[in-house]
Write a protein that binds this DNA or RNA. Structure first.
Lengths: 341, 341
DNA sequence: TTGTACGCGTTATCAC
DNA sequence: GTGATAACGCGTACAA
């Protein structure tokens, strides 16, 4: 237990080889004879050698660490993305140091400097707290996901296309008036595409529409209360129309659905609803909710590819930094369920 | 960019002090005069020094890393626990290397050896794949959460008490027959307490009851189909009774609720439902579901305390290992909502 | 209060 | 194919 760890030195003494040869057994085994490989393999087993990657990092600088900052894991979107990111370990071998950001710039800066102190090779940022300009200044490979990304590489869902798909589905399901409920999203955030796409397609097709941008609140109860109000307003305003409502996400779509179900016992025929994200709640709702599904696995994989590319470039003797950040776009998939019949 | 990092050596040369003094500035600043502290502080700023914790680890052995293995992040319970664990960074300063286990022993063993190679100081295990006996054999501080834990320290919810609370609530809400639906859980897993507690309290109070242990399937659709069958069977068997159903978790409770709502337009008066976990779905369901809430923040904190204790013991010159693993129990909190009125 | 010298465990360089 | 030696950057006796 308190016996010191077995090192290359011990293996070297035990076998009569040098440390160098032992090292080569791991990093370039072909340079040893098969026989000698076996001798070392036996010694490693006999002495129960355990590798020490910390020492290797110090010697060659490759930590195989990637830092991740997520805003929270309450929202299914983030836990799902983290899940997919962590699962890329099988393919890429990078280990992840994960922090949960809490909307405070200085604390997040502290996370980043902690990450840098551990010589991470790159970062994946999902939190919105720190500007891409500042992120870029850290001068380390970075990929952001679904956030402001002017100065850094990023992977985003094609929110604009998602909104177009959602609106089209609502039109197809026979709605007279299309409504989009969202919070006021800054234009430089990818999710703004949901608003823009909705407005553009409705205008283009001459569909009567209404974009309601309002803060729904931070808790489930606040959301519910605010949406209950909105339903009343909408029913006042469009009493005899078939209403197609595109919600900014599935959680809100579900709250809306539940409000209607408790009011009418079911989803009335003159309502259609589409959510966004394809969170579990969308399929687990009383009436499964149609939604714009984000391809989280693909997004995570693209993010890793983009990051690995940058990290590999850095390891070259003559690294050529990207002139322009690369922004990848992943198309969402429309999922038709029972709320758009 | 490709200029080498600034080290203590550079600071030493710049200030005229030795590396040792610079090191002390960080680890024992009081041993320097205020004036010299300032000189070094200025030099650090002037040269833009960035600390290198990898080197520190190699020198003193303290990585401040904790390895975490979660089975998945699809289930809200796990993402919530991970969230709470990661959030303890503010209090304890430990960094987390996170792996998602996928039910494969060898892959998880590989995760563990990877973690050990990075000289983590301890592990928090939520996955069920590897036995506590094997975990204990790694001879490193470990805490498990809500899983088989015979040979290692653990923090678990008081599942037995949770079931007792749930059953009592169902009795209080006037049910004639109490039903518990769960999968066949091994007796050495904490969640078995839900079955045992339910049976014990029902027997003790002479309440008519029925424990249905059956595999509900792995997907939402399978769950739904199986539960639809079960509802039919239950209604056949207990047609004129008020049924109190204690589900093994909120996801299943919600599916049951939705089946009933789609069948009757609302939750019939002769049904009461209680779930387990207090996942978001329980409050976001059409009819908010009563549930046994796990105190995730408290659980995470107890786990860290237990782990930190073991890790600190290890750093003493004469560590005294625990004779017996410590098992902490956290009481769940019954949350009454509208499904038990 | 400050400095010297060495150790931590591996990899890289250059010989042979 | 193999080995000696010097990094890598920091911590820590021990000395002064």
């Amino acid at each position: 237990m308190n016996k010191k760890n077995v090192t290359f030195d011990d293996i070297a003494k035990y076998t009569g080889f040098s440390k160098t040869t032992v090292s080569r057994y791991f990093n370039n085994p072909d340079s040893l004879t098969l026989k000698n490989q076996q001798i070392i393999a036996d010694a490693l087993a006999a002495l129960d050698y355990k590798e020490n990657k910390v020492a290797r990092i110090l010697a060659n600088g490759n930590t195989e660490f990637i830092g991740v900052i997520v805003p929270n894991l309450y929202l299914h979107y983030y836990s799902e993305m983290l899940n997919r990111i962590l699962s890329t370990y099988e393919e890429y071998g990078y280990k992840f140091l994960v922090f949960v950001g809490d909307e405070n710039k200085n604390i997040e800066r502290q996370y980043i400097s902690e990450l840098l102190a551990y010589k991470i090779e790159g970062m994946i940022i999902l939190s919105h707290t720190i500007s891409s300009k500042e992120l870029a200044s850290y001068n380390i490979p970075i990929v952001t996901i679904e956030r402001e990304d002017e100065y850094v590489c990023s992977v985003n869902t094609d929110n604009y296309m998602g909104a177009v798909q959602a609106a089209s589905l609502l039109v197809k399901s026979g709605c007279d008036i299309l409504i989009h409920i969202n919070s006021p999203v800054p234009e430089n955030v990818p999710a703004y595409g949901r608003i823009k796409g909705f407005e553009d397609i409705c205008s283009e097709r001459n569909v009567v529409h209404n974009v309601i941008l309002t803060q729904l609140g931070n808790t489930f109860e606040e959301n519910k209360e605010k949406l209950t109000q909105l339903v009343d307003e909408i029913e006042d305003k469009y009493p005899n129309k078939k209403k197609g409502i595109f919600m900014s996400n599935d959680t809100h779509a579900n709250i809306l659905l539940n409000i209607l179900i408790r009011k009418y016992g079911t989803l009335p025929d003159n309502y259609s609803i589409v959510g966004f994200d394809n969170s579990p709640i969308s399929s687990e709702a009383v009436i499964p909710i149609s939604t714009v599904g984000q391809q989280s696995e693909l997004i995570a994989d693209e993010a890793m590819k983009l990051l690995v590319m940058q990290m590999n470039e850095r390891k070259k003797r003559k690294p050529v930094p990207l002139k322009e950040p690369i922004h990848k776009i992943v198309t969402p998939i429309l999922i038709r369920r029972e709320t758009t019949m």
